[in-house]
Design a protein around this nucleic acid. Structure first.
Lengths: 253, 253
DNA sequence: CCGGATTTGTGCGATAATGCAACAAATGCA
DNA sequence: TGCATTTGTTGCATTATCGCACAAATCCGG
């Protein structure tokens, strides 16, 4: 559909940008700060914030604004309305128990992966991942599996659209090296990542396809790095992951 | 602050109502359906949806709209910006491991509780709870602890504002009985709920206070119902919960 | 306590959104 | 099929919002 200016609502788009200005790094914002982050006029930002506050999405102490749990309703409505999490959760639970490791299913949103379901076994990562959590796609096994499923030009575009900040000493952060790795992931059908997201964390991921063979998500297991060679880790867990992926293919439309 | 009409942005408020029209029950909406749910004019709803689609919050297949993971960013930005989850998570993990049961921390949002952190041990509930998940406050141990901390008039108002649908045969759904129960919770300092949320699920909750003694959240453990009397369940788990609550009080501002 | 700097609040004209009504296209139904 | 109803889209007068510029308030170092 062609985009018509007459069918756009500026106020809504601006308000959403203001909401997105609130992040973990900047949880409390004054009007000016929110205006600067969102790139909007102060007057407009102020009206957005007052509107949000009036409707319970923000709290205002006369100086700073903070978002309230009411905002969560916007996002979790989405998670709840997504059939994928509910469908995969039982498989995840069973898989996690079977292999004794945490497992997750994520989807791709731009250059980021979004966890939609998780079965935690023990804590491996420093940060607590949960449905809705985001990580950059380029350095995660889940992300690479889904990037590899895209047309190369599109993958390249996504990788170029964001700076590839190395997260550990092992993180691949060279575009060419990443594209080569994606090609490898594509041919071998899985991705193994060794401490590229976080020191001490390894993971193995496989694509999750729907009945038509389209990659709609990725499934992984994350485990603590050990002296064991990565190859034997893959040998241990890959078959289970692949089997669950095959089974999911039958139940996903 | 007085609410001035000139400082409100109708478009933003309308758009948010449209986003909230998407729920688990109604994940795919046509323009007319969204208009009816949100109570807005079809033309306005259409403009909202097209705007949302244009900015990646919605997908449109020419007939139906669905929200995209992009919307999650709105809510999880809030979760991530909340210090409470990060602070309580380590305590939750430790407590969960110690008592061998799932534990959760939730806050109150209107008449609902919102889970902000969770340490799952084994699956007890039929639905997968996660940070951001919501349940009615009146029938949960977490909710009752927080309702009991409110002024009685306010608690009564919240209880009256929503229909008290019994969820199981055990669910208290009489206002007077609930207010009596809240008084009991207030004096005894904890809430125990036996299969009022879901058949086969019990839980015990205690308030979580900040350094100033204000109840800011609630902490609970959920376990499978057994033949064991509720009193002995409470005896088993309450002390651990109370100790964690005491320790949290020192670290919460 | 002062003066400059930054932030917040507010008229106002230009501009854009609103909601009604009308209409066409799609859908349901007998 | 043919009629009735719902749904998507458009035009338009009314009404509200935008962002600029300016006033008021607040902050802050000396």
């Amino acid at each position: 559909m062609n985009v018509k200016q007459s069918d756009m609502m500026g106020g809504l788009a601006k308000g959403l940008r203001v909401i997105e200005a609130f992040t973990a790094e900047t949880p409390r914002l004054s009007i000016s700060e929110a205006a600067e982050i969102s790139g909007l006029d102060r007057a407009t930002t102020r009206r957005c914030l007052l509107t949000l506050a009036e409707h319970g999405y923000c709290a205002y102490d006369g100086k700073f604004f903070t978002v309230t749990p009411r905002v969560l309703r916007l996002g979790t409505g989405c998670l709840a309305s997504m059939p994928l999490p509910r469908i995969v959760q039982p498989w995840l639970d069973q898989l996690s128990e079977h292999i004794g490791q945490s497992t997750s299913v994520a989807i791709l949103d731009g250059a980021e992966i979004v966890y939609v379901a998780r079965a935690a076994q023990r804590k491996v990562m420093s940060i607590a991942l949960m449905p809705g959590s985001r990580l950059p796609a380029y350095c995660t096994s889940l992300g690479r599996v889904m990037l590899a499923a895209l047309p190369e030009t599109q993958a390249l575009e996504l990788l170029n659209s964001h700076p590839l900040q190395p997260r550990t000493a092992h993180t691949l952060h060279d575009i060419d090296a990443l594209m080569t790795e994606l090609a490898r992931v594509r041919t071998q059908g899985y991705s193994a990542v060794d401490q590229e997201v976080e020191q001490g964390l390894r993971s193995v991921a496989v694509p999750v396809k729907n009945a038509r063979g389209i990659v709609v998500a990725a499934l992984n297991t994350g485990l603590a790095a050990s002296s064991e060679p990565m190859a034997s880790v893959i040998e241990t867990y890959l078959p289970s992951l692949q089997q669950v992926s095959r089974e999911l293919r039958g139940v996903l439309s």
